[in-house]
Amino acid sequence: MGETFRFGNVTGPVNAGSGTQYVGGHHQVAGRDLHGVAGNQIMNQGLHADLEAIRNALGELRLTATERQNAERELSAVEDAVRAETPDREQAADHLQALTSGLERAGALADAGTSLVDALGRIAQWLGPLGAGVIALLGL
């Protein structure tokens, strides 16, 4: 049984891909691609949840005071970069890489639960090619 869809008079450039549709300059946000509408920053709820999961996991890891301080500083920098009016993915990637590298050197990634590794991985994926170093560190 086939389905028929009628869109009426559709004009202008129409591009559909990755869950986002652009029709004649009007930005429709659909699915998980929730980045920004009309100049207001609307962050992907999953990204907020992942940042919070990382923050919570840091509190449970066995880290020296210096390691914890460095990790919290890098995480705060990631949060600032992605929550800016225009997210700075390059800055976020640099700080996420530093955070992940520091946790690896401290041996904390091996002790961490899957929630931390998964959250780091999802943020790295959101960063696209800029997150490749983090994905490699995580072995994903």
Rank of each mutant, 00 (worst) to 15 (best):
E79W: 08
L120W: 00
V37F: 12
E79C: 05
D94W: 09
M43W: 05
A49D: 14
N15D: 14
G107I: 02
A57N: 08
R68P: 01
L137G: 03
E60I: 03
A106T: 04
L63T: 03
M43L: 13
G107F: 06
S76A: 15
G131F: 02
V10Y: 10
L61T: 02
D50L: 01
V78M: 03
P129V: 15
E3R: 15
D80G: 11
L109Q: 04
A49N: 12
L127S: 01
L61V: 03
L58Q: 03
E79L: 07
H26K: 13
H35M: 09
G8Y: 10
A57F: 01
D50E: 13
P129Y: 14
R122S: 09
H95K: 14
L99D: 01
A30V: 10
G131T: 05
D80K: 15
P87W: 04
R105S: 15
G25L: 07
A132T: 14
D50N: 15
I123E: 00
Q125F: 11
S76L: 06
A81K: 06
Q125G: 10
G107A: 07
D50G: 02
G131S: 10
D80V: 11
A93G: 09
S18E: 12
E52T: 12
A119T: 03
A38Y: 13
G59R: 05
G39R: 07
N70G: 12
L61H: 05
E104Y: 08
L96K: 03
L96I: 05
G46M: 01
L140S: 12
G8R: 10
R6F: 07
L103V: 02
M43A: 11
G102V: 04
I135R: 11
N15F: 12
L34Y: 10
G46Y: 02
I123P: 00
Q97T: 14
G19Y: 08
L96Y: 04
T11R: 11
G24M: 06
G102C: 09
S101M: 06
V82Y: 01
D111Y: 08
